[in-house]
């Protein structure tokens, strides 16, 4: 019984949040890794792209709510998501047309692309803040919980409850759908196969008649869509604040590199590795130990390895270890 209580506590505060956070990171890292695989640069504007897409979703949601439209049990944001994705895709394609296409034509070095993405980041961050400001915007309406801690306690008879928030459930479900759809696209469709071929060996793909502009177009569409979904899920799960998305850049890059830059399956795995380690290391184990430890042998203090403010340090340390031990990441990078 005590063990079960400890497990329930762990699932409630560690496993479920880490699953949701890991899904958000995985979606973000997929976008970064796709752009890296096709355009061969680390897109620093990705975090701001997430913020922009999420902002579009919020604005559409406000409009829908003003019209009295809602999804009932589910948050209205889901209804607004396609339009938000459309806005982000348009922005991404416009940016590519105006900025990156020129540098592609000139065959600029990857590092020039990276610096251009810094400039794009500046522009996006100004755009988002100009439209919606820097304040917190709380997202999500509909039912707050799929099941609450009390319902779980009554159902199971345990002392510790497990609550599953609607947003967490949606995040995991949406991620599963997106990842499945993406892998189906990459492995089964002609366009997806041409993308993988282009990423593997550009010259060979060009010789076999792959249209590079088309591949780049699809890559941006996918990256912008994934960024919007990831940003919206993060905003639903926590809160929307433009600055947070700038800070999310580091764990997202860490996830993409840990998994192997350019490898989609690696990005998903990396997202969960980063999320679980962040939360495991910054979790306070005190209450878990009170259940497991026999008698009154409970240590004082929170039994927390690192304070929550150092969660960046966790992604960074994992990043450094991977760079030192296996620079290509868990799944060999460089192939979409």
């Amino acid at each position: 019984m005590e063990i079960l209580n400890a497990l329930a506590l762990l699932s409630n505060y560690l496993v479920i949040p880490a699953l949701a956070y890991g899904s958000q990171l995985a979606l973000g890292a997929l976008g970064v890794t796709l752009i890296y695989g096709i355009l061969r640069f680390s897109n620093f504007a990705h975090g701001e792209m997430m913020a922009f897409g999420t902002m579009a979703v919020i604005l559409v949601t406000w409009f829908l709510q003003a019209q009295g439209i809602s999804l009932g049990f589910l948050p209205t944001e889901l209804l607004a998501l396609p339009i938000g994705i459309l806005a982000a895709v348009l922005l991404a394609l416009g940016t590519d047309r105006i900025v990156y296409r020129f540098h592609r034509g000139k065959k600029s070095q990857p590092v020039i692309f990276l610096i251009a993405s810094l400039a794009v980041m500046f522009f996006y961050s100004g755009l988002t803040r100009f439209i919606i400001g820097t304040a917190d915007q709380s997202m999500g309406d509909g039912a707050r919980f799929i099941f609450t801690a009390r319902e779980f306690k009554e159902w199971s008879g345990l002392d510790e409850g497990i609550a599953l928030r609607t947003t967490q459930g949606i995040t995991v479900a949406v991620t599963l759908i997106c990842v499945a759809a993406l892998f189906w696209f990459l492995n089964r469709t002609r366009a997806g196969k041409s993308m993988r071929a282009y990423s593997d060996n550009e010259d060979l793909a060009l010789l076999s008649g792959v249209n590079p502009e088309r591949v780049v177009l699809i890559a941006w569409i996918l990256a912008a869509a994934l960024a919007t979904i990831a940003g919206t899920m993060y905003g639903l799960d926590k809160t929307f604040k433009p600055f947070i998305y700038l800070q999310l850049l580091l764990p997202i890059f860490a996830a993409a590199i840990v998994g192997g830059l350019g490898s989609p399956i690696g990005a998903v795995a990396g997202g969960f590795v980063i999320a679980f380690s962040e939360i495991t290391v910054t979790f306070a184990y005190k209450r878990v130990l009170t259940y497991i430890m026999p008698g009154d042998n409970v240590p004082d203090g929170l039994v927390q390895l690192l304070s929550t403010e150092y969660k960046f340090a966790v992604s960074f340390v994992i990043l450094v270890v991977v760079l030192l031990v296996r620079p290509t990441g868990i799944f060999k990078g460089q192939s979409v």
């Binding site: 890296y36 640069f41 680390s42 620093f44 990857p110 590092v111 990276l114 800070q247 850049l249 580091l250 890059f253 860490a254 590199i257 830059l261 150092y310 960046f312 340090a313 992604s315 960074f316 990043l319 450094v320 760079l323 620079p327």
Partner: peptide, 15 residues
């Protein structure tokens, strides 16, 4: 790769 230095420095500055 040059990207890695960029990301590593981004990380250290946050830390």
């Amino acid at each position: 790769r040059s990207d890695y230095l960029a990301i590593a420095t981004l990380g250290i500055s946050e830390i």
